[in-house]
C-alpha cells in the first residue's frame, strides 16, 4: 500500500489516528470504499461543483441587478422597502459562524474531538438562528411571491440561499451523528473539510445577497 502524501517512513498503521497536518485525513480510502471514490478526488470534484453552483447565484444576482436598475415597476404598491435591522443581526450571526466552523476544523486537526463537537454544534445553532430569523422575516413581510418582479426576485434569492443553509445544516448534523460513533470521526476529516468549505461558500453568497437586496435599496 502506497500512501501518496505521507512520507514513506510513516507506517500507514499510524493513520488510525492520522497525522493531523497531512492532507490525508481519510484512511478509509486506503482500505477501500470498495470501488468508491478516492478522497482527494472528492475534494477536487467538490470544489468544481461549488464553482459551478456559485454561477447559479451569479446569474440570479445579475438578473436582480438588471431588474433593479431597469424595471419600470419595482416595489409593489404600499411597500416602502425592506427592514434592515433584524436581517443585519442575522447576517452578523451567519458570518460569525464561518469563524466558528473554522475553530471546529482546527479542533479536529488538533484531535480534540470534544472541542470539535462543541464548535460544530455552535455553528449549527448559529445557522439555525439564521434560518429561523429568515422565516420570521418572511412571515412579516407585506408582499408575496406574486407581488411583481421585486417580490419574486426577493423570495427566489433568499429562498434559494436558505435552501443552501438548510442543506449545510443537514450535512453538519449528519457528520455530527457520525462523529458520535466511536472511532469514526477522524476518518471523516475530508467530510468536515468539504462541509466547512460549503458553509463558507453559503456565507459569502449571503453577504453579496445582503448587499444587493438590503443595502442597495434606493433606485
Amino acid at each position: 500500500m502506497t500512501s501518496l502524501s505521507q512520507p514513506a517512513v510513516t507506517p500507514p498503521s499510524t493513520s488510525a489516528l492520522p497525522d493531523p497536518n497531512g492532507p490525508e485525513l481519510d484512511p478509509g480510502a486506503s482500505h477501500g470504499h470498495g470501488h468508491g471514490a478516492h478522497a482527494d478526488h472528492t475534494m477536487t470534484g467538490f470544489v468544481i461543483f461549488l464553482a459551478s453552483e456559485s454561477l447559479i447565484f451569479l446569474a440570479l444576482f445579475v438578473g436582480y441587478a438588471v431588474y433593479k436598475s431597469s424595471a419600470p415597476l419595482w416595489l409593489p404598491a404600499g411597500v416602502e422597502g425592506l427592514e434592515v435591522r433584524e436581517p443585519l443581526i442575522n447576517t452578523v450571526v451567519l458570518v460569525s459562524s464561518s469563524l466558528v466552523i473554522w475553530l471546529a476544523e482546527r479542533a479536529l486537526h488538533r484531535q480534540r474531538l470534544g472541542e470539535f463537537r462543541a464548535w460544530w454544534l455552535l455553528t449549527m445553532a448559529m445557522g439555525t438562528y439564521f434560518v429561523v430569523g429568515q422565516a420570521i422575516e418572511w412571515q412579516h413581510l407585506s408582499f408575496g411571491l406574486a407581488s411583481g418582479v421585486f417580490g419574486a426576485s426577493f423570495y427566489l434569492l433568499t429562498g434559494f440561499h436558505g435552501l443552501h443553509v438548510v442543506t449545510g445544516l443537514a450535512l453538519m448534523a449528519f457528520l455530527l451523528v457520525r462523529s458520535l460513533r466511536p472511532g469514526l470521526v477522524l476518518p471523516e476529516g475530508k467530510g468536515v473539510l468539504a462541509v466547512s468549505l460549503f458553509w463558507h461558500f453559503v456565507d459569502v453568497i449571503w453577504v453579496v445577497l445582503f448587499v444587493l437586496t438590503y443595502v442597495w435599496q434606493r433606485r
Binding site: 459551478s52 453552483e53 447559479i56 451569479l58 411571491l145 411583481g148 418582479v149 417580490g151 419574486a152 426576485s153
Partner: peptide, 24 residues
C-alpha cells in the same frame, strides 16, 4: 459547468412564472 447553472437559474424563474404566479 459554466453554462448550465445560468440555464438552471432561468429555468427556475420560468417554472415559477408558469406555476407560482410570479412575473419574472
Amino acid at each position: 459547468l459554466m453554462g448550465l447553472p445560468v440555464l438552471t437559474a432561468g429555468a427556475a424563474m420560468l417554472l415559477f412564472d408558469l406555476s407560482f404566479g410570479t412575473s419574472f
